[in-house]
Each structure stands twice: as structure tokens, then as C-alpha cells.
Amino acid sequence: MHWQVYFCANMPKPTNRIITLIKKDFLLEVRQQYTFYGILLYLASTIFIVYLSMGKPEATVWNSLFWIVQLFVCVNAVAKSFLQESRGRMLYFYSVAGAGDFILSKLIFNVALMLIMSLMSLLVFVVLLDNPITHFWAFAGTSILGGMGLSLVFTFLSAIAAKAQQQAALMAIMGFPIIIPQLLLLGKISNTAFSPVIQGGIWQMVALLVGLDVMIVVLSLILFPFLWKD
């Protein structure tokens, strides 16, 4: 259970280091369960408010509301990933792990976290706001893909924001304009899940989205080392 032990033996392989760092984030999550449940509650109450103000909306409104809720849930779920690390602890990580390992472990962990959140909000949406989706699994797949993209962008932005002082507000200011294109693409892709026929050109958009995700990971790997050293 003591994850520090992994570092003390002569440096393990990069994959092991990443797994250890993810394990550490996971353990933190298990020990401070209130943050996890806090986000779940945030998600549920946001959707409840949407339900109270909209009732059971038609498909296009349902779709856009879903992505807006996803955006806000993601900002809240991912924002803390770098902010929770104190200065001293960062210094410790700096001495035992590489920048690449660190950012990769954070990205993977947040993608997993957002995966759970995406599926949960899909569930709550279906329960509260009805289910206008014709191709349910296509929509579920899109929401997983979308959650992934959102969490990747906001993880890296949280690393930037942690370096500046006014973190929470900056996350939104920096993140929203960057995420708009992805949200537009996601909205277009997921719209097809509501129509009886899957339209052409959808794979092109999915490929573009996956390409963007790959680019975010590569950029994070290249740019994070500059944020890391002080």
C-alpha cells in the first residue's frame, strides 16, 4: 500500500513508474472519497436543475444540454488534479519521477475519471430527462470519446493554471475558447445518434476528434517539462 516504496528501489521502468503514479492518484481518491462523491453530486444536481427548468426537452436541446453539462462537470472534476498537489509534494515528485511520467499518469487518471462521469451523467440524463436517443450505443461511444477529449485538454490547462495564482477562474477563461471546436464536433457527431439513419461523413469527424486528442497528448508531453521545473 505504501507507494513510496516503489521509488526507493533503483528506478523502475517508465511503464511501472506511470502505473505507480496512477495508483497513487487512485489511492488519494479512495482515501478522500468526498471529492469523488462531491463531483457526482455536482453532476446530479446540475442535471436536476436542467430538468427543473427544461422538463423533458426534444432531441437537439437534449443533446446540447448534455454537452454543456459535460463541460462543467469536466472543469470541476479535472481542475483539482494539479491544484491538490502542494509545492513540497511537487518537489518530491520532481526528484523521483520524470515530467513525462507525471503528466502521462495524470492524463490517464483523468481520462478514467471522466469516463465514469460521462457514463454517470448519461445515466442521470436518461433517468431525469427521458431518452430521445435512437442509437444508444453510438451516443454512449461519442460521450466516452468526448469525455476523453475534454479531460485531456483540461488536465493540461490545470497544469498551467496551477502555476498561475488565480487558478479556478483561469481554467474557464483559458479552457472554454479552446474547447469550443471540440464541442461543436461532438455536437455534430452525437446529433446523428438521434436520427434514424446514420449520416455519411461522420467517420471523418471522429477521425478529426481522435487526431485532436493525439495532438493534445503529444503537446502535453513536449510542453509540460517547461512548466515542471521552477
Binding site: 485538454v153 498551467i160 502555476k163 483559458m174 475558447p177 479552446i178 471546436p181 487526431g211 503537446l219 517547461f226
Partner: peptide, 17 residues
């Protein structure tokens, strides 16, 4: 430094779009 990192990241996200 942080400005440069954000500039590069944002640019890379903006221009394809």
C-alpha cells in the same frame, strides 16, 4: 514561460479548427 506554453498549446488547438 507559462505564457509561451499556453501560446503554443492554444495555437495548436486553434489553427486546425
Amino acid at each position: 514561460k507559462i505564457g509561451a506554453v499556453y501560446n503554443i498549446f492554444a495555437f495548436a488547438m486553434l489553427f486546425p479548427t
